[in-house]
Design a protein around this nucleic acid. Structure first.
Lengths: 149, 149
DNA sequence: TTACATGCAAACTGTTTGCAAATAT
DNA sequence: ATATTTGCAAACAGTTTGCATGTAA
């Protein structure tokens, strides 16, 4: 049982998108939305739940992340690599991806701009423009030292 | 045995990057580099080899694609999704990704520009900036009709 | 009390690896 | 002759799914 503070907010947040506020969805929502702008993988969220002694199966984590994404509470970030990343910031924005430790960071919305986006080829339309600025940590400096999540 | 035309070119191309020109590497190089700007997945290349009756194992395709990438003959494109995409155009450029049929297309180098790339966080440096313009085909229109590869 | 959600294990996809047999130099 | 490469099958990671059990309304 994680916190109790904002249970009602979370409950209605789930209800609003048509998801039953079950114990596990509540707990995951609390972990995800209590702080701003998180970037999680299924595995990472699973470990986080473990850390606060919340019992949940990995399958349910996957299902829940997908449901939250469909419901618009999360957005999936397209970094290649085998893992799926979920971002609690669903607005239009771009990302740093640190290749040294596979961490994602938001790029503040107003710094970066893409100009001259070509028209979509005939019969298609643009759904989104994703920019990933790939980073490596310089020798001697630990990428891990920078705030992640 | 695919073609015979430019065997010498391909052979020296492989030698130049320190790879022995084996039968299977030659065949794959021929498939990949005969035409410009290809985007392949391992599976797709495997099927292509089958189509021209070249016997090769999928494991070798994977190994070869990775070797070619390390050698700088290919570059991996970071479209999320489970599959790895390899691009024969190793220069700096961006991509359309058609979500309807999972195909990649190059965006001509000079159309698109990213401005205001923020500085890398302390201790890190930018290795690359990737832009993916995601597309869907409009109803009624087949994305597949557009030239792929 | 009925429809929906969960947990488990098994299935599945894309990819990598260990090792014996085949090939390049 | 020697080192490298190949192919196979097995291993592997991440993710999804089928189904019996548990839970929310």
């Amino acid at each position: 049982m994680i916190e109790a503070s904002s249970n009602l907010d979370i409950k209605s947040k789930l209800r609003r998108v048509g998801l039953r506020p079950t114990r596990q969805r509540m707990a995951l929502a609390e972990l995800l939305f209590e702080t701003e702008d998180r970037h999680v993988t299924a595995e990472a969220l699973y470990e986080e739940a473990e850390r606060v002694s919340f019992r949940i199966s990995l399958a349910t984590i996957y299902n829940t992340l997908n449901q939250f994404t469909e419901a618009g509470l999360l957005r999936e970030v397209a970094v290649e690599g085998s893992k799926a990343y979920f971002d609690t910031n669903t607005s239009n924005h771009h990302h740093f991806f640190c290749e040294s430790d596979n961490s994602l960071m938001d790029i503040p919305d107003d710094t970066l701009e893409v100009i001259g986006i070509p028209e979509a080829p005939a019969g298609m339309s643009v759904t989104r423009v994703d920019v990933i600025v790939r980073l490596v940590d310089l020798p001697q400096e630990a990428c891990a030292r920078i705030s992640k999540d």
